[in-house]
Design a binder for these strands. Structure first.
Lengths: 269, 269
DNA sequence: GCAAATTTGTTCGTATGTATT
DNA sequence: CAATACATACGAACAAATTTG
């Protein structure tokens, strides 16, 4: 007698979903049908549905019905890379190669550039005083038309003053900023640290990623890149919805991957 | 006029929370008070509360009230490590060092050992045929008494047959399995790949991590370790609640971290 | 193209149960 | 034991989105 009725209904439905009796993409019985099947009120049935929707197992569409969630083919980003060439995963050239290797189509929003005072957080990561000016380059990415990530890079204003003026131009830096900084200022990226967290999206993010009924969490990846003197030269913050993104880190000597992640079918990358 | 009333109430409360007018740990007005303040029914107020609870901003406690979520001090695991010594982050010695460096207390459940047929997923990662036998070592970890992670490692049965019999004993392997396998079989771990995903917890996990009202997502980290011939020697699956865990990954030459991640105060590690 | 039917979304009222103080 | 506060459940009405005839 432990569980409330709506949980029992939810558990029953969940079992049917996970056992495969109900396949992804297919429609659940309507609320009225479930109301009869379980001899409960519509509100109680709706509580059960809400529970499962929160777990991401089902999605409701007004006017249509409730459907088993179809897992989007996850995109896998390899975050480890060669720091010396500046080819970290999820960025510039490497990133594009990774997308096209998966035979998927990448589109970019135009780069948006701003100059701001560093927040406490960014200042700490760049190891500069709070409220120092930083150049901020923001970009949004789509894979196969679906919103995939929002990325903002912060550079100390110092770099611009020393000659890297393209940083504050709202245009793509063709060769990538890592290469650009090496060419112009002789600053080499010697390594980077990625810091991964998961949190709820804010309003802007929920809107961009199109979480309509929503409740999908997002990854927030802080990448701090260091030059040869171990001084931070850049902080890049990227957010990705957790429902369509996965990450890989390689350490030491590993063979190329040849198989798919948890849950979904085959995917060659 | 766009948004329903419960969203407006939620947004209003959210703003008060995020602006700092309501501090973490403090109590929200009761449902009845909110009902009067917003001239709405109790059910509508509850919908607003539910919305915020799903975002993880607040928590309700029966008989007590609704409280602003206090962020648990996140534990940061460094996943990169030295693959040659077998010192990958989140495992054995390194892991314990990391915990005590943060001045926090680690406890372990006893190791639980089973022999199973490999699932499709595990078989694929170990690159062995499906339904081949694997040895499975399972362990649960607590930091400062709070459930922190559940870890299961899968080893090909082949290793046991070749002499690594301790793998199937339900006891700690003192020197760590990486060292043990090198000592007994001369198998060296040359590298590993970490594959990170986020998903909803299953019933067992929700129970262990004590998600009572729940809805916290969990990380699932698949680590495939390879020997010198790039043959998979082990797959370790670890799940962590996203609300109290973060990961770091270092590439190339980077200085030690000296500051805290997003959101919370200072933390030295 | 429009109207009707279907299906989920929002809001209210009410009653009772359960946990905590 | 009583008071307080959230949790569950039912019923009802109307709104909004979508599909169907």
């Amino acid at each position: 007698m432990a569980n409330p009725m709506y949980r029992q209904i939810a558990d029953d439905l969940r079992e049917q979903i996970e056992s495969g009796a109900l396949v992804p993409g297919s429609q659940l019985p309507t609320e009225l049908e479930l109301r009869e099947r379980y001899s409960a009120s519509r509100n109680t049935v709706r509580d059960a549905i809400k529970w499962l929707a929160n777990l991401g197992l089902i999605q409701t569409r007004p006017g249509q019905g409730t459907f088993i969630t179809e897992l989007k083919t996850p995109f896998v980003t390899t975050l480890s890379g060669d720091p010396l060439t500046g080819l970290g995963g999820g960025e510039g050239g490497t990133f594009k190669a990774e997308v096209s290797a998966a035979r998927r189509l990448l589109t970019n929003s135009p780069v948006q550039v701003e100059i701001q005072n560093a927040t406490r957080e960014i200042a700490a990561r760049l190891r500069i005083p709070e409220n120092t000016e930083v150049v901020l380059r923001h970009e949004r990415r789509f894979i196969d038309g679906t919103p995939y990530s929002m990325q903002t890079s912060y550079y100390p204003m110092d770099l611009v003053i020393r000659g890297a003026e393209d940083l504050q131009k709202a245009a793509d830096i063709e060769q990538g900023t890592v290469t650009y900084l090496r060419e112009v200022l002789g600053i080499t990226q010697a390594g980077y640290r990625d810091w991964i967290t998961v949190r709820a999206p804010n309003a802007t993010e929920a809107d961009f990623f199109n979480f309509s009924p929503d409740r999908v969490a997002i990854y927030e990846v802080f990448r701090t890149a260091f030059d040869g003197n171990q001084i931070p030269m850049r902080v890049t913050v990227t957010v990705y919805p957790t429902d369509r993104n996965q990450f890989i880190f390689n350490v030491g000597s590993v063979p190329p991957p040849h198989n798919a992640p948890a849950g979904d079918g085959d995917q060659d990358i």
